[in-house]
Structures are given as structure tokens and as C-alpha cells.
């Protein structure tokens, strides 16, 4: 055993040196301080755009200038990407972002993004949202069929979406034909 030890030490030393060298020499292109998923950066921009194409009923707001509340339910996949839409306005209303841990905290939201981590929790209590004017956004194929108003899908590496017009009607939301035209329309299961 002892005769091997020097050799093993030699190998490990050499290897560590080599690795250290590699890790020093190969520098990141740009800085890798914060990596942001481009997919979710695009989806965040979509969330902002949706607010321009959706009309909520008057009673969904306290008054004519109260903000549009965009909620992210569960673990947010957006990183810092939502910062870009924080100070935007849509139809004269400011946008506010709210990250919610539980489905109990999101009943007064206007836009509700359902992260994959909270999908099950949301659909377990979807009945609560049936009559509410919440523009629910799923993040997986098929969720609009399950009762969301809209869900993102990625097709050929591009972001697309499915809209369930029945869900929108039930929620008393008016979706612009411009948005409907570019979406896949789906029905309840």
C-alpha cells in the first residue's frame, strides 16, 4: 500500500494543478455573476404584453388608477427578469409584482403565473378561481385545457401559448382578438 502512496499523491497533485490551470485560463465570456434564463426573460416580457391585450371587469379594481397586480405563485423562475416590467404601465395602470408562496395569497391578483413548483397546489384549489377575474398563466403544455386561461409552450425553441377561451369567459376577461389570433385556442378537457 505504501509504495503506491507517493504515486497517487503525484497524480493528484498533477491533476489539481492542471485543473486549477484550466479553471484560471478559461475565463467566462462576459461575467457569469448572474445567469438569467433567456426563456424566462422572454416570458416575463410576454407577461407584460398580455396586460395590454386583456381587459378586466371594472369590479376587479378598487378604482380607475389602482395597479395591475402580477403574481408569481411558487418558486419564481424569472430571476431578475421581472425587474424590467416593474415600472411599466398598461392602460393607465401601474404594474406591481408580487411573489406568493401559497395559493391563499393570490385571490386578488390580476395576472397569476403558476410556477411548476405550485402547479399541483393551484389545480387542487382551482375552483376558487372559477368566478374570479384572474388571468391565470400556466407554464406547461396542457394547463389551459385543465382550466388556466393561458399557458406557455415552447415550440421549436420559440415561446408560444395556448388560450382557453372558455376559461377567459368564465373569468369575465376580454382578450383582444389580436392575441387570440396568434395563440392556439384550446377547450376544456
Amino acid at each position: 500500500m505504501r509504495i503506491y502512496r507517493n504515486r497517487i499523491l503525484e497524480i493528484i497533485k498533477g491533476f489539481l494543478l492542471f485543473v486549477a490551470f484550466l479553471f484560471v485560463v478559461i475565463q467566462p465570456v462576459g461575467r457569469a455573476t448572474a445567469r438569467v434564463s433567456l426563456e424566462y426573460h422572454v416570458k416575463a416580457a410576454f407577461l407584460y404584453n398580455f396586460t395590454k391585450f386583456v381587459k378586466w371587469p371594472e369590479k376587479a379594481f378598487a378604482n380607475a388608477t389602482s395597479p395591475i397586480k402580477i403574481c408569481i405563485l411558487g418558486d419564481s423562475p424569472f430571476g431578475p427578469s421581472l425587474d424590467a416590467i416593474k415600472n411599466k404601465t398598461a392602460g393607465g395602470r401601474k404594474l406591481v409584482i408580487f411573489e406568493a408562496k401559497s395559493v391563499d395569497d393570490v385571490e386578488d391578483c390580476h395576472v397569476l403565473f403558476i410556477s411548476s413548483s405550485s402547479e399541483k397546489e393551484f389545480f387542487d384549489s382551482i375552483e376558487r378561481f372559477r368566478e374570479k377575474s384572474v388571468f391565470t398563466v400556466g407554464d406547461k403544455q396542457g394547463l389551459a385545457r385543465k382550466g388556466c386561461v393561458i399557458n406557455f409552450i415552447v415550440v421549436n425553441n420559440k415561446v408560444r401559448f395556448e388560450i382557453n377561451t372558455k376559461s377567459a369567459e368564465r373569468a369575465n376577461l376580454k382578450i383582444s382578438s389580436q392575441l387570440l389570433k396568434i395563440a392556439r385556442i384550446v377547450n376544456d378537457e
Binding site: P28, G30, R31, A32, T33, A34, R35, V36, S37, L38, H41, V42, A44, A45, Y48, N49, P80, S81, A84, I85, K88
Partner: peptide
């Protein structure tokens, strides 16, 4: 992924 500095404003 893109790094934060290079994030384009898509809004």
C-alpha cells in the same frame, strides 16, 4: 442563459 449585463430589454 444570458448573463445579467447582457440582458436585452424585451418589454
Amino acid at each position: 442563459y444570458v448573463s445579467e449585463e447582457s440582458l436585452p430589454d424585451l418589454t
